[in-house]
Amino acid sequence: MENTEPVALEAGQLYTRDQLRRGRGGQRQSGIVTPSQTKEILVFSDVKAGKGPGYHWDGWADDSQQVFYYTGEGQEGDHQFTRGNLALRDAARTGKTIHLFRAAGTSQGSTAIQHRYEGEFSLDPEQGWRREDGPDQAGELRSAIVFRLIRADGRAAAASPEEGPHPRAETPTAATTVKVVAAEGHHVDEFGVAARQAGTAYRRERAVEKLLVEELARQGVTAKRLKITIRGQSKPLLTDTWDEKHRELYEAKGTVARAKVREAIGQLLDYRRHIIPPPAMCAVLLPSDPGEDLTELIHSCGFDLVYLEGSKKLVRKPAPKQ
């Protein structure tokens, strides 16, 4: 590469990657570019194109455009602090400046993507990153790193009239809250992964939960569910059936396979620790009798077992009293 001076960066201006690489070097396609010839980190965000590869959390915290949330790099599997993610996390320690660019389409007669320079940013020194769960490029659930970038000079770049509304991120909540919400519709995770992978077990799970809801209705109980927002996270947890009258929480699974029973137990343990006061009872809801050993496992956690016997009858096996 010829030895040229790096192009000067001016907030609000458009640049192609080729322009930015001159005199800087760095990767051609990465979202987090670490130039070899300067003490900089170039961060590229493309909200529209990023959804498919699993970059779901990019966007401004609010209309002041002082804080930008940026999804770390890595299209499949859990994000790790390697390569660009590591460089971005350690930018302050290594003395590198962070520059944010947002995709702004292509110029007329060209296929090269232009990137609008938003200015210099730094990682929030108190809470520079968080983890969020969501599907990767292959549709598999994974843990992603989401960085919190703060504008260095406090001045937003001038708006472009052709650009349209600025992208807003789903921001993390400030406090953990638990709300009772309606149970209409079937529960799937926020990104719809369960819906895309729906099969026999999933339909069986929904069917056995429907029977529970009907049985509660005969007892004069309107089934609800709980919406649990976790401090520092943007996506809420939505439980399965919540019996508010008796303060009982149910987690349904469509198979008695050990892995799914263990998953139900883990979910109930996770939910329960956020509910104050704790539920009077938690129960695992299954489509058939899981057998002696798994029944003992469920009871060892202090949970009831409720399962379908035949096609219509729900059987409850309470946890032994301590």
Results as ranks from 00 to 15, higher is better:
residue 148 R to Y: 01
residue 146 V to N: 00
residue 191 F to H: 13
residue 153 D to S: 02
residue 170 E to K: 10
residue 163 E to L: 14
residue 170 E to Y: 10
residue 251 E to R: 02
residue 172 P to L: 03
residue 200 T to I: 10
residue 169 A to K: 01
residue 242 W to Q: 01
residue 178 V to M: 08
residue 191 F to S: 01
residue 240 D to C: 05
residue 251 E to T: 02
residue 215 E to F: 08
residue 231 R to H: 08
residue 194 A to P: 05
residue 163 E to V: 09
residue 235 K to L: 06
residue 179 K to Q: 14
residue 234 S to D: 05
residue 225 R to D: 04
residue 167 P to G: 07
residue 172 P to R: 00
residue 230 I to Y: 04
residue 229 T to S: 15
residue 255 T to H: 03
residue 162 E to P: 04
residue 251 E to Q: 15
residue 246 H to C: 07
residue 243 D to Q: 06
residue 221 V to K: 01
residue 154 G to A: 06
residue 245 K to C: 05
residue 185 G to S: 03
residue 234 S to P: 04
residue 225 R to E: 00
residue 179 K to M: 12
residue 210 K to R: 08
residue 202 Y to M: 12
residue 152 A to R: 15
residue 160 S to G: 08
residue 146 V to S: 00
residue 153 D to C: 04
residue 178 V to L: 10
residue 211 L to G: 00
residue 250 Y to Q: 02
residue 174 A to E: 15
residue 257 A to L: 13
residue 185 G to W: 00
residue 207 A to V: 00
residue 234 S to H: 06
residue 217 A to V: 09
residue 171 T to K: 03
residue 151 R to K: 13
residue 250 Y to C: 03
residue 206 R to N: 11
residue 227 K to E: 15
residue 166 H to D: 13
residue 191 F to C: 04
residue 251 E to V: 03
residue 176 T to C: 09
residue 216 L to N: 11
residue 152 A to K: 15
residue 178 V to H: 11
residue 148 R to M: 00
residue 181 V to K: 07
residue 152 A to P: 01
residue 232 G to W: 01
residue 149 L to F: 01
residue 149 L to I: 02
residue 181 V to L: 09
residue 149 L to N: 06
residue 222 T to E: 12
residue 174 A to P: 08
residue 160 S to Y: 01
residue 197 Q to P: 03
residue 190 E to T: 04
residue 228 I to A: 04
residue 189 D to A: 01
residue 200 T to M: 10
residue 244 E to Q: 14
residue 155 R to C: 03
residue 193 V to P: 01
residue 235 K to M: 07
residue 246 H to L: 12
residue 232 G to Q: 02
residue 203 R to K: 12
residue 150 I to D: 14
residue 244 E to R: 10
residue 186 H to G: 14
residue 153 D to I: 09
residue 236 P to A: 05
residue 157 A to R: 00
residue 165 P to K: 03
residue 159 A to S: 14
residue 204 R to C: 07
residue 199 G to P: 06
residue 173 T to L: 04
residue 189 D to H: 02
residue 153 D to W: 10
residue 154 G to K: 02
residue 230 I to V: 15
residue 162 E to C: 10
residue 220 G to Q: 09
residue 150 I to Q: 13
